[in-house]
Design a binder for these strands. Structure first.
Lengths: 233, 233
DNA sequence: CCGACAGTTCGGTGCCGGCCTAACCGACCG
DNA sequence: CGGTCGGTTAGGCCGGCACCGAACTGTCGG
């Protein structure tokens, strides 16, 4: 366990993200969807052979998981833990001041900050507000890590939410929000809440990104009207 | 805020750690001390010109801070936040199964797991046990992030611990323990507790690493005898 | 002053890795 | 079956960068 061999491992791991193309891919994959190789090539503005090599590297490194279907190679983050890892890093990495000049860029960024998906759960002001509301109503217990209280479980039942097959995944996990810098809800419950909200139409995807449009129905989540107003343009 | 430019930033940041030599340096610096360039060159087994370039890169990148004194160039982690970042990454990076074969390696690793410093605070079983004990006695409040309760502040006073000049640093912060995978206490309080324990001789450095020798006096921290016995060889 | 020592600058070398084009394989589709 | 399209393989190019030795700057101690 010399510092040197440790260094080797840390470095070889960091190298996976130390390339602009690969980093772009991983960031894109944070939307939780499976992308095809060509889609990613177009996104990262490189040729298909190039993206192919990068994907090999990331899959071999265990960061990505792939599914071959016919002539397509679908690739996605290896799992929730991997997603958390990328998320965390992106949140930690010192952010250079980003200048949003054009009007459309500004509104886009605002929408992103208001509400979006983060891998498979809700994030942005919406995600943080949801976590706050749940805490306030005694649905979450933060005393030791973070857990769902009995009231929390009952609440999920009321909403008709069932946690489907989570193999060993923690029911609820906190995840540092990239824009808010405060925790929001991840884990199996986070995923279930997100898919429920989408299924019920409480939030809908804004095409071309991870940003979400928030409807008044999110009050079903126990959010106050004032909060909800802030989540809308 | 395109995914592409984000990728650039994440990548350029990750590149700092994507070299075995630089990673080794950062890991070594986790002990919180300031090292000279030559020491690091010897540790990483590279020439002095080479280490000089690496240090330039890390300092420019904001990961390291340097102090020039006479003909020496002392370098250390830029700050607590940077240390947390490296720590976090090292904890997250998938660990290959490390085989400790020799007897001395085993006992070394055990000592490291039992008690050590982590940047400027206590870690290992000791760190986690301390956090547990403080929580149990109502000195810490985990309901919103983590804070010191009034009882906690009083306890610090009793021990004669004063928090010196912490410019904007959170009083108490939780930090994921690399070996235990459970939180221990960092932040200004963590640093104060650590330096107090060292000053009082409750723990002492085992030469040649970050590992600590634990004496019975740590009961002053409110640890049970059973716990303390586990912390000793 | 004159060595000894810490660190840097400079030039040069070698290699690795990211990228491309061209050619190929295999799946799907009329 | 022939065309199209997604993906991979092969080969070659280029740039960057990690490294070193040698020479230089600057500091400290006799």
């Amino acid at each position: 366990m010399s510092t040197q061999t440790e260094g080797q491992e840390l470095a070889s791991w960091a190298r996976m993200l130390a390339d602009a193309t690969r980093a772009t891919v991983c960031l894109a994959l944070l939307d939780g969807r499976a992308w095809t190789a060509t889609e990613l090539a177009r996104l990262a503005k490189v040729s298909r052979p190039t993206i192919s090599e990068h994907l090999n590297l990331l899959v071999d490194g265990g960061l990505l998981r792939e599914v071959r279907q016919g002539r397509h190679r679908y690739v996605q983050l290896a799992g929730p833990d991997t997603a958390e890892l990328i998320e965390g890093l992106a949140a930690l990495a010192p952010r250079r001041t980003e200048v949003a000049n054009s009007l459309s860029a500004v509104s886009k960024r605002d929408a992103f900050a208001r509400a979006r998906t983060c891998y498979d759960h809700l994030a942005g002001k919406l995600g943080v507000a949801l976590a706050d509301a749940m805490t306030e109503r005694g649905l979450l217990d933060w005393s030791d890590g973070i857990t769902l209280t009995p009231e929390g479980s009952a609440w999920l039942d009321d909403l008709g939410i069932v946690l489907e097959g989570r193999n060993g995944r923690p029911a609820v996990r906190s995840c540092l929000d990239v824009t808010e810098r405060r925790p929001h809800i991840a884990g199996a419950v986070g995923a279930a809440l997100c898919s429920h909200a989408l299924r019920e139409g409480w939030v809908t995807h804004i095409p071309g990104g991870r940003a979400l449009k928030v409807t008044g129905s999110v009050r079903e989540f126990g959010l106050g009207v004032g909060v909800i107003r802030e989540l809308q343009p």
